[in-house]
Structures are given as C-alpha cells and as structure tokens.
Nucleic acid binder design. Structure first.
Length: 468
RNA sequence: GGCCCUAUCGUCUAGUGGUAGGACAUAGCGUUCUCAUCGCUAAAACCGGAGUUCAAUUCUCCGUGGGGCUACCA
C-alpha cells in the first residue's frame, strides 16, 4: 500500500513555525518513502477561518518548496460527505442528539472537577429516541454527540511507542453542531479515510485527540492509520510557541531575509537528527536521511541564534547570481540598476551577513560616504600629522595605478608596499576609515575596486581636508 | 484537579550496561588595519531515590521537574 500523508492546517491565523515544521516532517517522510504528500484545509470553523490565512499558508509552503501531490481541498466543500456519515451514526445509535445547554454542561464540569474527577458529559440525552430528537432539533438548539463506549484504546505511536487512553474518562464528545456543521475530530476521520491516508504525522498537542478519532473510525468501519506525534516546538518560556513570543507569522522569516533552504535545514534539526554529526544539510540530503525513528520525543526550544548561524552558512555558499537575485527585495530600487557594482558588493559582504536584510546597511557605504568625525581617522596613538602624511602618500600611490588595472589584487599590491614601509595600522586604518567612514568595514582594496579610482580619491581628499 | 506525553551542557542534540561526542551561544588565543570569516583552546550536561546487576546516564519502579490536552476551536 502506498504511503500517503497529509498536512491539514486550519486557516484560523497566520501560518506559523509550528505549522511549517509539521508540514515539513510530513513532506520529508513522504519524499523519503516515495509516498504522497497531500494537503487539506480544515476550515470547519466558519467564524475563525479566513481566506487570507489560507493564502498565507499556500505561499509559505511554496516558498519552502514543500510541493504537494494532487489537488488540495477544503472541508467546507465536503459537507454532504460528513452529513452522510453523521446520519449513519445517528441511525445506528452510535451518535445521538443532545439538548443540554452550555450552562448545564459548565455546571456539570465544575462539579466534577471540584470532586477531582475527569470532566466529561454525563449522558443525559443518550436515551432520547431519534424520532423525538429530530423533531426537537428543529425547534431547539442541539448538537450531535458520539456515544463513547467504556474501554481502553491503545495505539502504537511511531515515535512514542504504545499509548493508552481510558475512554471512560473521555465521555460522549460532540462531533457536530448539526448535520451541516461537523467538528474537527469527526471531519478528520472522514477525510483521512476518503484520502486513503496511511500515516498521520502531527503535533503532540493532538495526542489526546487520537483515541477519540480512533473510536469514531471504528464506529464508521474505517481503516486504521499509523500515528506519529511530533514533539512540540517551545518558546524561550518553555511553553508551546504562541503569538506572544516568536510565533510570529512564518512569513516573517522570509521578509527578514532568511533563506528557504536554511529555514528548512533548521526546522529539520528541531526534533530530528541525522546519523552523523553533519548539520548543514541540503534538501536532498535531508530527504535521503530522514526517518521518523530518529525523531525526538521531548519538546524543543526554538533557538534563534542557531538559525542565524545556519542562514549565514547558506549565505556563504549561495551562488553569486542567486545571491544578487535574493538581495533585490531588501535594497532600494536605485541600487538594483547598478547590477555589476551590486554583485561585487554582495561578494565582499556576504560573509558579514546573517540575514539578507543585513545587506542594506553593510552596502550603504559604497553608495554614500557616511558622516564621520576626524577622530575616526586616527590609528591608536599615531599623531595626526603622521596620519595626514600617510594619507597623502597613499593617495599619491593609488593615483598612479593604471585606470585599466584598478583591480583588488593590483590595488592591494600598491597599497601594501606603502603599508609595509610605513606601518600597516598607520596606513591601512586611516585609509579604510577614509574610504568607508566607519569603524568596521571591508578592506580598503575591496572598497576601492568597487567605488573606483575617482571616488576613492575624492574620499581620501575629503579625509585629508578634515585633518588639515 | 484529572488524563496523557516527556527528562544528556544555557539551547539543539549524539551515544552506551563499564560516567559522555558534535553544533549554536559564551570566554580566550591565533590570522588581521577594523569588522566579519576562518582555525585552535577553554568552560559547560546524563533531575532525584530505590531496585536489577560485578557495574547504570543507559533497564524497571516511584518521586520531582517540564509540556500537552481537558470546547458546541483545530
């Protein structure tokens, strides 16, 4: 039987890191096993589901490169299918209409909890006949409950091993608000059967939903599926990632300048690890090595510094054309036109970036000399007069470089002759400071080649003017 | 409160019945005019107790800590 997994998000909020990780592990498993990765939108909650969130999710999946097989569908498009199964359960008395009010249920719950019992529905409406219930349901608010028989439901979890739940503690759960409004635990079961899902890979927060879904599955006579509950990604507060912390929208990783392969690599390593010690892994390598057996059981705290480091690693090896292309979204429009210059700057500064968004500030000096004070030009205790003299001399040397040979290597040769004679710090620091206007920057030869002989001379003269 | 899951450096993790390896972060050194990169070094962990065993971080149990769920959300 071919392996079929699904990613089934509900579009009730911005796509999150947790969502992305679940999608990734499903996708990795499918690709590694040569199975299928399907997509399903769980939009049964009409109030909270929004089209914009669905769009956001689709964009994020595409950006990450998680391609799905077959067409995806929305649960809101499958209402008749759920209705059919709901009616079947009702007729077979495996489900029944319940007319208890929210207030009554809340009181019951409170009473049970104060006695140290597990809160569950008492079963007051269990005995109402279907005929009577259907008549009443037309006039008064009602929901459909699943009749949960007492017993132990155990299932093997690929990651955790055997897990057991006592259904007597769960009680009769609500599976639909009415025939046209199914609820999560019910819709999932119907769809997984319809889609011929073989493995359900999802977050650990769904572990306690599993016995409910298995019970419904059995009542409907559906086939079993295998489960794998992933450890949760925790925030720095050790709690399930929430909007309050880093659970910003996943899209922000893109807009902040993280590379998709780096984010994928990082997420894969959150709860999974290859057999060897390698950590920078390409998509193909991850697919080749991925397996559910090596997935961690305990939750993992999200570590932004490591993401930055990994992103830096990818930035360093990104082909020049791809780097230039990726940078386009992070720089002013005027810069984009200066293609050649931009490419050179990117090469010079790529090692200094953690994120693509860092580039703008790093590259700024090539387009415009920042304001700086005279003291920036002074190297340690060197007297101003010596600095001034070195600058003048260096300018003279640089001016003698043939215009057609104004390349980094040549410039370096000329400049280093001066530096070796007059002291490296004494020559190079003021020169670099004059060229960049900053305390930290690429080397003088790098800057000179990019800004050119003329602009270089202008900047050095400007520094000389400050010192005079 | 009840149920379920879980436990190796600060963080992500490897690993084994004979006390632990890698990575990020941190500190120092080296390369270097600066920053960054890179290289090297240091500091840094098996939650506690009992049991099994010649021996337990590893197996079992009990605690404790952490997390999740406990909706007419998903």
């Amino acid at each position: 039987m071919p392996i079929r997994v699904r990613f089934a998000p509900s579009p009730t909020g911005p796509f999150s890191l947790g969502n992305a990780r679940t999608a990734l592990f499903n996708w990795l498993f499918a690709r590694h096993e040569g199975g299928q990765f399907l997509l399903r939108i769980e939009d049964t909650d009409k109030e909270r589901s929004k089209k914009e969130y669905e769009k956001d999710m689709l964009e994020c999946l595409k950006w990450l490169g998680l391609d799905w097989d077959e067409d995806f569908f929305r649960q809101s498009e499958r209402i008749p299918a759920y209705k059919k199964e709901l009616e079947k359960l009702l007729e077979e008395k495996k489900a029944y209409w319940c007319f208890c009010t929210p207030e009554e249920l809340e009181d019951e719950r409170q009473a049970q909890m104060s006695q140290g019992l597990s809160p569950k529905y008492g079963g007051r409406c269990r005995s109402i006949s279907l005929e009577e219930a259907e008549a009443r349901a037309k006039k008064e608010p009602a929901v459909i409950r699943f009749r949960m028989d007492d017993g132990i439901i155990s299932f093997p979890d690929i990651i955790r091993g055997k897990v057991s739940f006592d259904t007597a503690l769960i009680g009769d759960i609500v599976i639909a608000k009415d025939l046209k409004t199914p609820l999560y635990n019910f819709a999932v079961v119907v769809d997984d059967e319809e889609m011929k899902i073989t493995h359900v890979i999802r977050g650990e927060d769904h572990l306690s939903n599993t016995p409910k879904q298995i019970a419904i599955q059995e009542a409907l006579g559906f086939s079993k599926v295998q489960y794998a509950h992933l450890p949760l990604i925790l925030g720095p507060d050790h709690k399930k990632l929430s909007k309050r912390y880093l659970e910003t929208s996943f899209n922000e990783y893109r807009t902040k300048g993280y590379l998709a392969p780096a984010v994928m690599n990082f997420m894969a390593l959150l709860g999974w690890h290859p057999e060897n010690d390698r950590e920078v892994l390409s998509r193909e390598e991850i697919i080749a090595e991925f397996g559910l057996k090596r997935v961690q059981k305990a939750g993992a705290i999200f570590n932004p510094e490591k993401l930055d480091w990994l992103n830096g690693q990818y930035l360093k090896i990104l082909p020049p054309e791809e780097l230039a292309e990726a940078l386009k979204d992070f720089i002013p429009k005027e810069w984009v036109k200066k293609k050649e210059m931009l490419a050179k700057i990117a090469e010079v500064d790529r090692g200094r970036m953690k994120k693509l968004s860092d580039f703008r500030e790093l590259a700024d000096i090539f387009f415009e000399l920042p304001d700086y004070s005279k003291s920036l030009l002074i190297w340690k205790e060197t007297p101003e007069a010596a600095i001034l003299d070195n600058l003048r001399f260096t300018l003279d040397v640089i001016s003698k470089i043939p215009a057609g040979d104004f390349k980094k290597e040549t410039i370096e040769k000329y400049v280093m002759t001066v530096a070796d004679k007059r002291g490296r710090g004494e020559v190079l620091w003021p020169l670099r400071a004059a060229l960049s206007g900053r305390e930290a920057s690429p080397g003088p030869a790098d800057i000179l080649e990019i800004i050119g002989q003329e602009e270089g001379a202008r900047r050095i003269n400007f520094a000389i003017g400050k010192l005079e």
